[in-house]
C-alpha cells in the first residue's frame, strides 16, 4: 500500500514538473515571437523529404487515373484548349501593347512597380497542419530556395497568406482566412482603407470579414479589394478578394461587410511565393 502511494506521488511530481516546463515554454515562445524558429528546423527538415515523396506517390496515382481517361473526352479537351489558346494569344498581343503604355505612364508618374514584376518562386502544398482550427499549410520550398519570413504567398493571382516559419527545405504559411489574421487593404477604385479579417465562423459560407471602412466611402458590390501600401507585411496592390454586402455600422462612423477571397482555399495545391518582403522593400527606398 505504502509503495503504491509512493509511486502515485512520484508520477504526480513528474506531471507537475512537466506542466511547469510546458507552461514555461509557452511563455518563452510567446514573449520571443518569431525569433526562435530555428530550433524547430532539425526535426522538420528530416520530415520534409518523406512528405515530398508522399506527394510524389499521390501525383503518380493521379497521373495514372488521368492517363486512363476516355480518348474521346481528351480529344474534345484538346480542341477546346486549342481554341482557348488562340484566344489567349490574341489577348497577349493586346495586353503587350497595353503593358508598354502602362510602363510609359508609370515612368511618368514615377510609381513603384506592380507585384507582377517581383521575382517569384513556385511551390507545392505538401501538408495541412495541426487540426482544423488553424489554417496553416506547409510548402516544399525553404530557406535553401531563398524563402524568408514574412514573404507573401499567392495562388491564382490572389493573396493566399504569409510565410510564418521557414526551415531548410520547407516553410509554413498561415493563410489570410485564419481566425487571427488581419490584412490592411484598400478598395481598388476609391482607395478607401479597410481591414480584412479572417473569421472561422463565416468560413463555411466561403467568405471572411471586411471592417473599418470609412463611413463616407462608397464601395460597389463585388468591387476588388487589394492590399494597402500602409501594411507593414504585405506588398501593395495584391488582390485579396471581392467585397459585398457592405453596410453602415451602428456607430454611423464606419462601414463593414464581407469579402469573398480570390483564392480557393479548399483546393490549394500550387502556390507562388514573392521573393521580396515589405521590410526589405522599404529599406531599399
Amino acid at each position: 500500500m505504502k509503495r503504491k502511494l509512493k509511486i502515485f506521488l512520484k508520477i504526480k511530481y513528474i506531471l507537475m514538473i512537466l506542466t511547469i516546463v510546458m507552461l514555461g515554454l509557452v511563455v518563452v515562445t510567446y514573449s520571443m515571437g518569431g525569433s526562435i524558429y530555428s530550433y524547430k528546423n532539425m526535426l522538420s527538415s528530416a520530415i520534409s523529404p518523406i512528405r515530398n515523396s508522399i506527394q510524389g506517390i499521390r501525383d503518380f496515382f493521379t497521373g495514372i487515373s488521368e492517363r486512363n481517361a476516355d480518348r474521346e473526352e481528351l480529344l474534345a479537351e484538346v480542341e477546346a484548349l486549342q481554341a482557348e489558346n488562340e484566344e489567349l494569344r490574341q489577348q497577349i498581343s493586346d495586353f503587350s501593347s497595353e503593358k508598354y503604355e502602362l510602363n510609359e505612364l508609370r515612368d511618368l508618374l514615377n510609381l513603384a512597380q506592380s507585384y507582377s514584376e517581383y521575382s517569384t518562386v513556385g511551390a507545392t502544398v505538401i501538408a495541412k497542419n495541426t487540426g482544423n482550427w488553424f489554417y496553416e499549410f506547409t510548402i516544399d520550398k525553404g530557406s535553401e530556395d531563398g524563402i524568408e519570413l514574412d514573404m507573401n504567398v499567392l495562388a491564382r493571382g490572389g493573396l493566399a497568406g504569409i510565410v510564418t516559419d521557414v526551415g531548410k527545405n520547407y516553410s509554413i504559411v498561415t493563410s489570410i482566412i485564419a481566425d487571427d489574421m488581419n490584412v490592411s487593404a484598400v478598395s481598388s477604385t476609391g482607395r478607401d482603407s479597410c481591414i480584412v479579417s479572417g473569421d472561422l465562423e463565416l468560413l463555411d459560407e466561403g467568405y471572411i470579414r471586411l471592417m473599418y471602412l470609412p463611413g463616407d466611402a462608397s464601395v460597389g458590390e463585388y468591387e476588388r479589394i487589394i492590399t494597402s501600401t500602409t501594411s507593414s507585411k504585405y506588398l501593395p496592390g495584391i488582390l485579396i478578394g471581392y467585397a459585398f454586402n457592405i453596410t453602415m455600422d451602428s456607430n454611423e462612423l464606419t462601414q463593414s461587410g464581407y469579402l469573398i477571397p480570390a483564392v480557393d482555399f479548399a483546393h490549394l495545391e500550387h502556390v507562388v511565393v514573392i521573393q521580396k518582403t515589405k521590410t526589405s522593400m522599404l529599406q531599399e527606398e
Binding site: 510546458m22 509557452v26 524547430k40 526535426l43 520530415i47 488553424f134 496553416e136 516559419d165 509554413i172
Partner: peptide, 20 residues
C-alpha cells in the same frame, strides 16, 4: 503534443499540455 508544437507555427508547449 510537443511534436505537433514543433511542426506547427504556434507556441511550444500548447498542444503538449493538453495531450499530456
Amino acid at each position: 503534443g510537443l511534436f505537433l508544437d514543433l511542426m506547427s507555427g504556434g507556441y511550444l508547449g500548447f498542444y503538449g499540455l493538453i495531450y499530456m
